[in-house]
Every structure is written in C-alpha cells, then in structure tokens.
Amino acid sequence: MSAIYILIPIAVALVGFAIWLFVWAVDNGQYDDLDGPAHSILFDDEDPQHKAGIAEADQPEQQDQPRA
C-alpha cells in the first residue's frame, strides 16, 4: 500500500509532462502540415530531360572551321 503513495505522484508528473510536451509541439507548429511533406516526395523538382536541354542550350555552339 505504501508503494501507491509513490506511484501516484510519479504518474501525475508523467501525465503533466506529456501534456506540456504536446502543447509545446502544437505551439511550435509540429502538426501544421501533415500531408505536404508526404506528397512532396512523390514529385520531382525538375524534369531530368528538361535539365539536360537547358545544359545543351547553355553551351556555345561550335562552328565548323576549315582545316588548314
């Protein structure tokens, strides 16, 4: 019976800490956007073929020079 006098305050303290931790997480925006990061990994930032086309367009064209 004497153990319950120790366990009840410890349990109340743990519940209080869990509630404080949850309130802190909500205030810091941890639960603002749950779906955005999950969906963002499904889409590429840039199309690889488009990136290759830009790289080719940035290179200066070599003109054929007559050989001597």
Results as ranks from 00 to 15, higher is better:
Ser2Leu: 13
Ala3Leu: 13
Ile4Ser: 10
Tyr5Met: 03
Tyr5Pro: 00
Tyr5Ser: 11
Ile6Phe: 07
Ile6Val: 06
Leu7Val: 03
Leu7Ala: 11
Pro9Lys: 02
Pro9Gly: 01
Ile10Ser: 04
Ala11Phe: 14
Leu14Ser: 06
Val15Met: 07
Val15Gly: 14
Gly16Asp: 03
Phe17Met: 14
Phe17Thr: 04
Ala18Phe: 09
Ile19Glu: 07
Ile19Asp: 01
Trp20Thr: 06
Trp20Pro: 00
Phe22Ser: 13
Phe22Leu: 10
Ala25Met: 02
Asp27Asn: 14
Asn28Ile: 11
Gly29Val: 00
Gln30Ile: 06
Gln30His: 07
Tyr31Pro: 00
Asp32His: 09
Asp32Glu: 03
Asp33Arg: 05
Asp33Tyr: 15
Leu34Ser: 02
Asp35Met: 05
Asp35Gly: 10
Gly36Leu: 05
Pro37Ser: 01
Ala38Val: 04
His39Gly: 08
His39Phe: 14
His39Met: 11
Ser40Trp: 15
Leu42Gln: 01
Phe43Lys: 11
Asp44Leu: 07
Asp47Met: 13
Asp47Lys: 08
Gln49Pro: 00
Gly53Pro: 00
Gly53Ser: 08
Ala55Tyr: 03
Ala55Met: 02
Glu56Tyr: 08
Glu56Pro: 06
Ala57Glu: 09
Asp58Thr: 10
Gln59Phe: 02
Gln59Gly: 13
Pro60Trp: 14
Pro60Ala: 12
Glu61Arg: 10
Gln62Arg: 12
Gln62Phe: 04
Gln62Cys: 15
Gln63Arg: 08
Gln63Phe: 09
Gln65Lys: 07
Pro66Met: 11
Pro66Arg: 12
Arg67Gly: 11
Arg67Ser: 09
Ala68Tyr: 14
